[in-house]
Structures are given as structure tokens and as C-alpha cells.
Design a protein around this nucleic acid. Structure first.
Length: 718
DNA sequence: GACCTGCTGCGGTTTG
């Protein structure tokens, strides 16, 4: 029997209605893996590869052919974006309509009436965000068994975004809690674009038995890649002529087709969008370059997305990672990347947006901007580290490498969140039960009983007041805990900064972080246009704008990203090598040679520690952000002044000698490596933990203390 | 030296 024959009648009818000649390869393989078996499945294929159908055609067939006799949702889908859920729900409704099976999208923008209907008579497919599922546990904990008693499988969309994140840990915890509430494990089906390490993805679904997860990967189909890296040099400091040249190049190359330009930061997006608009206006050409980032209004972003998807008018979105994943935006001619990104996986994901049709090459235009060398130029400029990183990332991309998730992280902030959530779900819980659910069966397996006890004590501290113990050992929410859990902002595990709302002509055009110092009369570039600030309302955090002829780009802030050890190691291979990649233009070749010359001149080809002057050194750690930052903190706590770069530290000290301090570190003679004033609170629930716990959390995720002695030993001997 | 994601229940008012 063919895969098609095994599908239910309504599903076959829908497939014929689509005019499909045959099922795609992954759809056939998914049908085989899903129908009549019960193993977990991962379906990995590029965007628009028919993954959703591959999972749902067999899953729905099972629901149609063997309807359940108890109430409850038949299938659960968890997606990371509201827009994705709305999109997928519309697609599934077409398949389910015929058989009158309800499809319920559920997120913050869905009307309460439709949610109430679904709760009253749960059936069919529920598509939900992690946050809304969290809210169901907190607000309707007692009803969870009824709602999901009959559920046959959960589909996890865009699974690669979940592997290493707080949100991914939250989702895994919710699934464990769902299993326990039902008294039966729910089958997991993961959908993903290209995954770096498939075994880690399997372990995400089944930590105890990763090999039992059935893997379906779309074979080959990798289209040809056309690649170019162009180098640019700025003039004196504060000069933006190189950026203007890149804008001119983008204008010439991209006009007339659909493209994505990843500019790296929201401020940069605004700069290039403004420059490109200006170039169009000067030549009296219609506008086709639009900014796209998270601070712009939903309305503006939808406008750009729809323009891209329609394919009627040529459209280039200058964007941040907002357009890395999510809804289908149609065929893209080329992906441009200004400056190197922080991860190879982001680069790969971005490139996946181009050249998706068979026979059409994917095109990557990479731009590297370096500063003119002056007396005051820093190490990063002199070694041309931006260009070098861009090359290292492209090389690793071509080798199909990408960053693995860090599985040792404790995720203590999310652990606090889940402790509060379980207590709210059940109206109370014992410490033993919390530990069993979260740390033995759930995702917090690297948290040992001692650490878990310390977390509970921190939350139970009368000054914190998040939880308290009743006479029968039951843990309950304290007054502060109740306040936090009752507020709707509780459901997300990630923090949200405070922002101004920007109004123009009475309409909201976006938001700005409050750390911008803004006053009436100041000029602003925002949403690809120029404005004058009319009024700042500090109480309600509202700023009114009027059109203006000039402006400057605002500050959006942000934290520096972590660069992996493998990327830094490759940067050193590039710096010490003498081959010139074929995809570099003349200016980039010139810049690479300048960087390599400077590396030799500093003397790094024979040592890793270079003496600059009395009490000043440059150290080539040759390690990623986590290890390099660990050494930087350890030296800071010994009174060193430290400046960190990709794989390098610039150090100075009035009295101490670097080599003898490194020797002490290499011998493991120092236990205090975190300075007293180090900032350790980054995640949403970190403020409720003790400093010792924050240090433990940082050491498990952002730092690497276990590598420190070896690094110091290496620095002294090589 | 960065980016992104998400959100309930209730009381009041308006409209058909």
C-alpha cells in the first residue's frame, strides 16, 4: 500500500484538490514513520519544504480514521510566533473543514470568545504559544487532564530555536508537566529547518533515549551558492562614507528584485533604510527599500512582509533577525549581510531564505567595513577582526558547521519560573515533588539537590517572600509570589525592557528603549523616515513626532553576543594563514593582508603574550567569548584593567606582573575569579536569587571556569 | 559589540 493509500479519505480529497501529482519524499517518509507506530519523530527540511503537511497529513488521518471517544484536543501544536500560528491554523483549517474537525489558534491576539468555546468543548487541533500554554497551566491547572486526555501527539514547530534557549527549557518543562497530568507520555513530533547537531535535537525530545527518535531529513536539494565578500574602509573617525558606499552598492545591485539585507543592529537598519530611501528620492524612483525590526509597529512590519510575499512590486527589506524565521515571505533573489553576525547558525538560517527554488542559486553578498588606521586605532581595527570574523564564519558555513547548544546550563531563572508555576497550577506542592517533576523528569537535570534546595531557600527568604511553607510541608505562594504570578506578564520566561511609544499623527509607529535621552525639538530617524520630537510624556512613556527634513539614528542598546570557540579558532587560522579566499574583492584582499601583517608585527606567531610597555600586555587567548570573559574577570578581580576583543585581551596593571598571576591561575591557587562588582543578573527571575546562585548560573552558561587553568597553562607555555 | 519571542481576567461602556 502506498503512503497515499494509507491516508484518510478527507486528507486524500484535500491532496487531490491541491492538484498535487504525488507526495514529496519527506511526506511519504513521515507518513511511514507516523502511521501505525509511536516513536517520536523529527522532520528536518528547509523552509517551505512541506514539513507542516508531512507531519499533519498522517496525524490527521489517524484522528479521522480512529476518532476518540473521550473529549479533549486530538492534536497539540506549539509554535514560537503568533503570526506563524495564525498562518498554520489557516492551512490546517482547509484540510480539516471537510471532516468538520475544529482547528483552534490560541495566542494573545485571539478573541476570548473563541478560547471559551474551545475550553467548553475541546476537540480537533489546538495551536498555541509556549506562553499561552503556560497560562493554561497557571489559570486552569485543574482542567489540564480533561483538555488533553485524548491528545495523540504534540508538534513542535521551529524546533531549532528551542534547543538552547530559556523558552525551549520552559516548553520542555510544560511538556513534562503535561505528561504527568495526563498520566501518559505525549508523542513528540519536531519540525525544523536545518539542524546543526541532530543528536542534540533528538536528546531534546527524549533525553533518556535519543536513539529511539526517528529522523527524517530532506535529502540533498542544496542549491548552488554564489558568494562575494566586499571590503570597505572608512575615513576619519565619525565618518560614514564607507556606509554610504555600501548603501550605494545595495541600491545598484538590489533594485528591481526582492531581497533581504541583514544590517546587524536596529540602528544600522534605520541608517541604511534612510540612505536607500534618499537614493530613490534623488533619482525620483519609486520607493522599494523598507526597514524591518522589532521596534517598528506591527502594522509597518506586516506591510513589508505582505509586499515581499506578494511579489508584485520589487521589495528589499533592511532587517534584523526579525526576518530570519517565521511566515513564508516568498522567493528572495539575494541575501546581503553587513558585518559578520555573531553565530554561523544565524548566517545559515538567513541564507536559507534565498535560492529555495530548484535550479536557482542562493546568493550571499557579505560586506565588511573596517576603520582607517590612525594612531588611536584599537587592536580590533588594526587586526581587521571584523573582516577576519566574516571570513571565518563563511568558511565554517561552507563546511556545514554550526554552533551546538550548551547543555550544561542550569537555567536557574527559568527554574524559578517553573517552581512558581507548578505551585500555582496545583495550589501548592512539596519540595520533593517539585524536584522530581523539574529536575528528575523535566529539563533541569543538571540541577543537583543541593542547588535546588538553595534556590527554594532563596525564594522562601522572608525578604523575598515568593514562597512560604505551610504546616504540612506544602509550599505555597507568598504575597510577593502571588503578585508576580497573578500579573499577565508572568507567562513569558524572558525579560522585557521598558520603552517609549512613538506616535506620529496620532498613530503608533513603534517603540524606543527608555535609555534614550530625548527632548522636544530633537531630530530622529525612525521607521525609514525623518522626524522632529514635538512632545515627551515621561509619565505615560509616550513621544509625539512630526515630519522633519533631517535626523539622527536613535540608540537601541543590547548586549554583546557570545562567539563560539570554534569561530575564534578559525579566525586565528585565517590570521596566520596565507591563502586568500576566492570570494574576496580587491579591497577585502588588501584589508586581510593588513590584518595578517599587523599580527606578525605584534609578534604573535611566536608567543601568545606580547609585552606592550611596562605593565601593559596583549594576550591572544584564541578562545571564544565564554572562556575569554572568564579570564578577563579573573584578572579584573586581581586589579588588572582589561579590554576584550575576539580572542584577544589587552591588559594593564600598575604593580602586578601578568605572568606570575597567570601562573597562580594555572596552578589553581585562586578560587575567587568573579570580581565583587561583576554584573550577574541577566534573566527575568535572576533578581530573586542569591549571589552564590547567580555565580553558579553564570559559570554554567556564560562563563567556562573549568577551562581557565588549561588556558593559563597554554598561554605561559606556547 | 546584538537580535528576537510573549501576555489573563474582569469591569465598564456601547451597540444592536
Amino acid at each position: 500500500m502506498t503512503a497515499f493509500d494509507r491516508l484518510a479519505r478527507p486528507v486524500q480529497k484535500w491532496i487531490r484538490g491541491q492538484g498535487w501529482r504525488e507526495l514529496r519524499d519527506i511526506q511519504v517518509r513521515a507518513a511511514d514513520a507516523i502511521l501505525g507506530r509511536d516513536a517520536d519523530v523529527i522532520i528536518a527540511a528547509a523552509t517551505a519544504g512541506g514539513k507542516t503537511e508531512a507531519a499533519f497529513l498522517p496525524l490527521l488521518s489517524d484522528v479521522f480514521d480512529r476518532p476518540s471517544d473521550v473529549g479533549g484536543f486530538d492534536l497539540l501544536y506549539i509554535g514560537p510566533l503568533k503570526a506563524l500560528i495564525t498562518d498554520q491554523a489557516a492551512r490546517l483549517t482547509m484540510i480539516c473543514d471537510e471532516a468538520e474537525l475544529p482547528v483552534t489558534p490560541w495566542h494573545g491576539d485571539i478573541a476570548q470568545s473563541s478560547k471559551a468555546r474551545a475550553i467548553k468543548a475541546p476537540r480537533g487541533v489546538l495551536l498555541i504559544t509556549p506562553e499561552s500554554l503556560e497560562a493554561l497551566f497557571v489559570r486552569r491547572g485543574a482542567e489540564i487532564p480533561r483538555l488533553f486526555a485524548a491528545t495523540r501527539a504534540v508538534v513542535l514547530d521551529e524546533m531549532h530555536t528551542m534547543l538552547d534557549s530559556e523558552r525551549g527549557v520552559q516548553t520542555r518543562s510544560l511538556l513534562t508537566r503535561l505528561d504527568l497530568a495526563r498520566g501518559r507520555r505525549l508523542r513528540r513530533i519536531g519540525l525544523s529547518a536545518t539542524l546543526g547537531d541532530l543528536n542534540l535535537a533528538r536528546a531534546y525530545l527524549q533525553p533518556d533515549n535519543p536513539n529511539s527518535v526517528h529522523l527524517i531529513e530532506a535529502d540533498g536539494g542544496e542549491s548552488e551558492l554564489r558568494l562575494q565578500l566586499k571590503g570597505y574602509t572608512t575615513g576619519a573617525e565619525g565618518d560614514s562614507s564607507a556606509q554610504a558606499q555600501v548603501a550605494q552598492e545595495l541600491f545598484t545591485r538590489l533594485r528591481g528584485s526582492d531581497n533581504l539585507v541583514f544590517a546587524g543592529a536596529r540602528g544600522q537598519v534605520e541608517f541604511y533604510a534612510d540612505a536607500l530611501r534618499h537614493l530613490c528620492e534623488r533619482q525620483a524612483l519609486p520607493q522599494e527599500f523598507y526597514p524591518h525590526h522589532a521596534s517598528l509597529s506591527r502594522e509597518h512590519r506586516s506591510f513589508v512582509e505582505i509586499r515581499l510575499k506578494n511579489g508584485q512590486l520589487p521589495t528589499t527589506a533592511v532587517c534584523t533577525s526579525t526576518l530570519e524565521l517565521g511566515i513564508d515571505i516568498g522567493d528572495i533573489a539575494c541575501v546581503a549581510q553587513i558585518g559578520a553576525p555573531f553565530t554561523v547558525s544565524a548566517l545559515r538560517q538567513r541564507l536559507g531564505r534565498s535560492g529555495r527554488r530548484a535550479g536557482v542559486p542562493a546568493i550571499l553578498r557579505q560586506y565588511a567595513i573596517e576603520a582607517k588606521i590612525e594612531g588611536t586605532s584599537d587592536l580590533s581595527d588594526r587586526l581587521r577582526l571584523r573582516l577576519v570574523r566574516a571570513i571565518a564564519m563563511i568558511e565554517l558555513l561552507l563546511e556545514n558547521w554550526c554552533e551546538p547548544p550548551r547543555t550544561s546550563a542550569l537555567h536557574l531563572s527559568t527554574l524559578v519560573h517553573q517552581i512558581l508555576s507548578i505551585i500555582a497550577e496545583r495550589g501548592g506542592a512539596t519540595a520533593a515533588r517539585l524536584f522530581r517533576v523539574l529536575c528528575r523528569e523535566g529539563p533541569f537535570r543538571v540541577v543537583d539537590p543541593q542547588t535546588f534546595g538553595a534556590v527554594l531557600r532563596a525564594l522562601g527568604n522572608p525578604d523575598t517572600g515568593l514562597i512560604e511553607q505551610a504546616a504540612d510541608e506544602l509550599l505555597l505562594l507568598g504575597p510577593a509570589g502571588e503578585r508576580i504570578v497573578e500579573h499577565y506578564s508572568f507567562y513569558a520566561v524572558f525579560p522585557t525592557p521598558e520603552e517609549y511609544r512613538l506616535l506620529a499623527g496620532g498613530r503608533e509607529i513603534g517603540t524606543l528603549p527608555v535609555d534614550n535621552v530625548l527632548a522636544p525639538g530633537m531630530l530622529l530617524i525612525f521607521s525609514g523616515r525623518r522626524w522632529r520630537i514635538v512632545e515627551v510624556d515621561d509619565r505615560d512613556k509616550v513621544i509625539s513626532l512630526a515630519p522633519a527634513p533631517g535626523g539622527t539614528v536613535p540608540i537601541f542598546g543590547g548586549d554583546p553576543g557570545d562567539i563560539h570557540d570554534v569561530v575564534i579558532a578559525r579566525m586565528f587560522t585565517v590570521l596566520t594563514g596565507d591563502t586568500v579566499p576566492v570570494y574576496l574583492d580587491t579591497a577585502a584582499v588588501q584589508l586581510l593582508e593588513e590584518g595578517r601583517r599587523e599580527y606578525k608585527r605584534l609578534g604573535f606567531y611566536r608567543t601568545k603574550i606580547v609585552d606592550q610597555a611596562l605593565g601593559a600586555w596583549i594576550v591572544a587567548t584564541q578562545t571564544g567569548t565564554a572562556v575569554t570573559t572568564t579570564l578577563a574577570l579573573a584578572l579584573q578581580s586581581q586589579g588588572f584593567k582589561v579590554q576584550a576583543y575576539d580572542g584577544f585581551l589587552e591588559l594593564s596593571h600598575d604593580e602586578a606582573d601578568l605572568r606570575s598571576v597567570l601562573q597562580k591561575l594555572a596552578d589553581g591557587e585562586m578560587d575567587k575569579i568573579i570580581p565583587r562588582d561583576a554584573i550577574l543578573s541577566f534573566e527575568k527571575f535572576h533578581p530573586h536569587l542569591t549571589r552564590d546562585l547567580l555565580i553558579q548560573d553564570a559559570l554554567s552558561s556564560r562563563l567556562k571556569a573549568d577551562m581557565l587553568t588549561r588556558l593559563c597553562h597554554d598561554l605561559l607555555t606556547k
